[in-house]
Simulated scan of single mutants.
Amino acid sequence: MTNEAVIVGSYQTPYVKKPTETTLYFILKSIGGLLNKYGISPTSVDGLGVSSFLMGPDNTTTIAEQSGICAKWTHQGSAGGAAHVAGVLDAQQAIINGRAETVVISAADSYSVAVHNKLMNDFNSSMRDYIAPHGFGGTNGLFAMLQRKHMAEYGTTREQMGKLSIVQRENAVHNENALLRTPLTIDDYLSCRQIAEPIGLYDCVMPCGGGESTLLMSKTKAESLGLPYVEILAGDYRSNYGGDQFLLMSGAWAEFQSEMFSRAQISHSDVDVVGLYDDYPIMEIIQLEGLGFSPQGEGGRFIEDADISVTGDLPINTGGGQLSCGQTGAGGGAIALTEVLMQMNGEVEAERQVPNPELGVVSGFGMIGFGKGTGQSAMILKKG
């Protein structure tokens, strides 16, 4: 007989610009904060997953040692910004299959602009050996090509992408943990410094330090402890989707979203809140298309017409996302899930609380390989 697995909640450390603390500090801070929040002893946790670009020479096993967890199931994320959602889905299966009963999935890094730039040149062998030697401009250069192609083929405009940055900044104004909280206007967005044309300053994330952790357990245990929980209705992930393409104009979401929504037994119009991986606004548009909220190529017009504010028809990245909060390395793949869970559990500031969110969609994207992100993930959540 299988066990139903649920998500109890999440914890986010304070975000730090130019951090002096180590990545290990942020990982352990997020795990400890999560367990304290829900009154769980480390000794009662029997599953652990960690995603990080910078935790080496440590790994999930040594993180278990440092945090006092004896784990009989472990997971180490390898898909960058898609890894945390994928790790939560794998933890769900571990609980269902009896491999663990209480699992923590963590994602964190001690990130800065300098650390990010150094990491990009040695991110993997493809980038190190074939792209970085030619002065590729980091991820900004790669996504500039993607954005230019999307604009040329589909008529997507900078004003449409600017709406995402502006509305998310409006959300961040009310998020005490966001590092960028000064409101933006469309004139600010359009006239800002160009980084890699057509990508400007407000299309880019600010690297920072921080960590996120998510707590899962069997539904039976959560109920016995009197803890609130969120159900995982469906989810999926892929690695190396579209491996024959250099610039990936879609993603694996397009391959599995229909089945995912069918398994969840909901329609897109039922969704109350969405958390997208937002390293650049263009990737939010591509995710909305891939997830089926908009037809391929019409994501820009969808954003232009939709009300994506916290009181709108489809609230997106209600905490400000990475574009306003900052990108904590691999933790950037967890911030969207953390925010949606906090929304469902009523833990955010009143000014950015979505009214009675019952259903949410979260997606992840990452691990830049030879010119594109090679990992995509997504899940549908329901408040228990």
Rank of each mutant, 00 (worst) to 15 (best):
residue 221 K to G: 01
residue 14 P to H: 04
residue 90 D to L: 14
residue 223 E to M: 15
residue 94 A to E: 06
residue 18 K to I: 03
residue 243 G to P: 02
residue 1 M to P: 02
residue 377 S to K: 03
residue 96 I to C: 14
residue 4 E to I: 04
residue 250 S to W: 05
residue 277 Y to S: 08
residue 371 G to F: 09
residue 106 S to E: 08
residue 207 P to G: 04
residue 17 K to P: 09
residue 253 W to N: 09
residue 301 R to L: 07
residue 69 I to G: 14
residue 82 A to Y: 00
residue 56 G to T: 09
residue 133 P to G: 09
residue 238 R to F: 03
residue 82 A to F: 00
residue 46 D to C: 04
residue 368 I to T: 14
residue 370 F to S: 09
residue 163 K to N: 01
residue 267 S to R: 07
residue 139 T to F: 11
residue 6 V to N: 15
residue 97 N to E: 13
residue 112 S to V: 02
residue 40 I to V: 14
residue 248 L to S: 15
residue 309 S to Q: 07
residue 158 R to C: 12
residue 203 D to P: 14
residue 275 G to N: 13
residue 305 D to R: 13
residue 97 N to Y: 09
residue 350 A to I: 09
residue 30 S to I: 04
residue 176 E to R: 11
residue 86 A to W: 00
residue 154 Y to S: 04
residue 359 L to F: 13
residue 39 G to K: 05
residue 33 G to T: 00
residue 201 L to G: 10
residue 225 L to W: 05
residue 331 G to I: 12
residue 261 F to P: 04
residue 223 E to T: 10
residue 31 I to V: 13
residue 59 N to C: 09
residue 4 E to T: 09
residue 324 S to E: 03
residue 311 T to V: 02
residue 1 M to N: 00
residue 268 H to C: 05
residue 317 N to L: 01
residue 353 Q to K: 14
residue 200 G to P: 12
residue 84 H to G: 01
residue 244 D to K: 15
residue 222 A to L: 06
residue 139 T to E: 14
residue 152 A to K: 14
residue 111 Y to Q: 09
residue 41 S to A: 11
residue 288 L to E: 02
residue 260 M to K: 03
residue 301 R to Q: 13
residue 190 L to K: 15
residue 207 P to I: 02
residue 94 A to S: 12
residue 298 E to P: 02
residue 37 K to A: 11
residue 179 L to W: 01
residue 70 C to V: 11
residue 268 H to T: 06
residue 96 I to D: 13
residue 41 S to N: 11
residue 28 L to T: 11
residue 278 D to T: 05
residue 175 N to M: 06
residue 283 M to I: 10
residue 263 R to S: 06
residue 114 A to G: 03
residue 15 Y to I: 05
residue 11 Y to F: 15
residue 283 M to N: 15
residue 40 I to K: 10
residue 237 Y to R: 00
residue 192 C to L: 07
residue 126 S to P: 00
residue 273 V to T: 11
residue 275 G to K: 08
residue 218 S to R: 01
residue 107 A to P: 12
residue 362 V to Q: 06
residue 248 L to G: 12
residue 220 T to S: 07
residue 288 L to D: 01
residue 325 C to H: 02
residue 277 Y to H: 13
residue 185 T to V: 07
residue 348 V to Y: 10
residue 364 G to D: 01
residue 128 R to L: 07
residue 85 V to D: 12
residue 284 E to N: 13
residue 64 A to G: 15
